[in-house]
Write a protein that binds this DNA or RNA. Structure first.
Length: 466
DNA sequence: GCATGATCATGC
DNA sequence: GCATGATCATGC
């Protein structure tokens, strides 16, 4: 039987639609998911090629739809209350060190193969097999000229490390949208050819689009309104996103709060007024962390106030979590873990000089893996135990005005130097359902809570030179 | 001064 | 209407 040929992007999209709404088990014409231990994510792309496009996988070595220059990628998203998001990077082609050294971005293997992507999507469902998940939609993706400038910068960063003989120091944290992630099973395996050629221990790597980038693409695609962008194309020709952001903020260093308030017309009493000052500096009308560059670049702004005596008064909050979700999850799968692991934190630091706050400095930070994996896990486990036991309320405290507050057993600030759990909602009546009713009070809902970063830890971070 | 529980103002 | 970024307020 001859293979079908698709003549246009529209035909590709139309064909994809014929598969949407069907599970991977239904589309699995060659039984790639059948049998013990055959729950392989890697099979899904092949299943779409065979079951939807009626290609035979083995007959073609190169680009998926070579005549159209389109590469097919099948990938899963997660639904969070903030919208759709990707948990994992989207792997592209294998990184051939010598080719990258020799090739300009425009002529690179990566760009040749991946400049036009057809993305087939399914929702990743915890606890289900891939065969039970459903191909649900897809879209055609090309890169905007702004994206291309950033990809080019990223490619050059990786290429320069190879050129200057330090390819062994390549890290995914070097770059913004395009990463060079390690690939291949097993630890300690090396790319033998490249290692020999460069006299370095070089891991096998792939180019990959970062999860935060693709999350941004997806949110923009499904957004109701426009997503705000704060950087234009001309600037990107000269500088990286990170440098542009830092350069936007630098002129305001030394400005006092009263000056910033006047410049950016921010109300006096807003608890988030410092965030609004930074928005003003960046030229963002909406929330800084919702701008295209922050989402796709994986930057997360946090403002910090340092008091005149050198301390920080407040711990740092994060979005609230869902109690019922937490007890079902592994630590690594929580939104909090994913956020800390994947974001580059941009701390805007305001210091009080005894009279008022002054915008003093900026610090970029990424959490050390060990703290997240070990200390975070402790707090998470304790939280999970409390929720599952139903021993949530520990007692009551009556304030002088007669108001009664509930005391709880969630992990306390006093018990861990990095993380704790505290309320985070509109007020005490802003609640979420509990997995197990509280034993003492019988309540089935509790004030929304989130993980907090302890202020003394935050102070350590911003005071450490690097 | 810290720990802990509670809440505010804004943007979408 | 509600999530979020962040600060307030009380008690010890």
């Amino acid at each position: 039987m001859s293979e079908p040929v698709y003549h246009s992007i529209q035909e590709l999209l139309d064909q994809l639609k014929t598969g949407c709404g069907r599970t991977f088990a239904e589309l699995d014409v060659n039984h790639r998911l059948t049998g013990v231990g055959r729950n392989d994510k890697g099979a899904l792309g092949k299943i779409v090629e065979e079951g939807v496009y009626h290609y035979s996988v083995n007959s073609r070595a190169e680009a998926d739809f070579a005549n159209l220059g389109v590469e097919l990628k099948t990938t899963g998203y997660n639904k969070t209350r903030n919208g759709l998001s990707f948990k994992e990077r989207l792997p592209l082609n294998t990184l051939n060190y010598q080719n990258v050294e020799a090739q300009e971005f425009e002529d690179s293997d990566m760009w040749h193969k991946c400049q036009q992507l057809l993305i087939a999507l399914y929702e990743y469902l915890e606890g289900k097999t891939y065969g039970e998940m459903t191909l649900d939609s897809g879209f055609f993706h090309t890169f905007s000229k702004e994206d291309i400038e950033i990809l080019k910068q990223d490619y050059e960063i990786i290429r320069n490390k190879i050129k200057s003989g330090v390819a062994d120091t390549i890290s995914e944290t070097d770059t913004t949208y395009l990463g060079a992630c390690t690939s291949g099973a097993g630890h300690g395996k090396l790319d033998a050819t490249a290692s020999r050629h460069y006299h370095l221990n070089l891991k096998p790597r792939k180019f990959a689009l970062k999860a935060v980038y693709f999350t941004g693409v997806l949110r923009r695609l499904f957004a109701k309104g426009e997503i705000e962008s704060v950087i234009d194309y001309e600037e990107l020709k000269e500088k990286s996103v990170q440098d542009i952001i830092l350069d936007r903020l630098k002129p305001y260093i030394g400005k006092t709060e009263s000056e910033l308030k006047e410049m950016f017309h921010v109300g006096d009493t807003s608890k988030s007024r410092f965030e609004r000052y930074v928005a003003g500096m960046l030229g963002a009308k909406g929330k800084v962390n919702a701008t295209e560059e922050f989402v796709k670049g994986g930057f997360e702004l946090k403002t910090i106030r340092v008091e005149a005596n050198g301390t920080i008064e407040q711990n740092m909050s994060f979005p609230y979590f869902d109690f019922r979700e937490i007890v079902e999850q592994e630590w690594e799968d929580t939104e909090f873990y994913q956020m800390l692991a994947n974001k580059k934190y941009l701390f805007a630091i305001f210091e009080n000089n005894g009279k008022e706050y002054i915008f003093k400095r900026i610090k970029l930070w990424h959490i050390p893996g060990q703290i997240l994996d070990e200390e975070g896990y402790k707090v998470f486990s304790e939280l999970k135990e409390v929720l599952l036991s139903g021993n949530i309320v520990r007692g009551f405290q009556t304030h002088k005005d007669g108001k009664v507050v509930r005391l709880n057993n969630f992990p306390k600030s006093a018990s861990n130097p990095y993380f704790h759990v505290r309320p985070h909602g509109e007020d005490g009546g802003d609640t979420n359902p509990l997995p197990v009713p509280d034993k003492l009070t019988g309540v089935t809902e509790y004030t929304k809570q989130c993980f907090w970063l302890k202020k003394t830890y935050v102070l350590d971070i911003i005071n450490k030179d690097d």
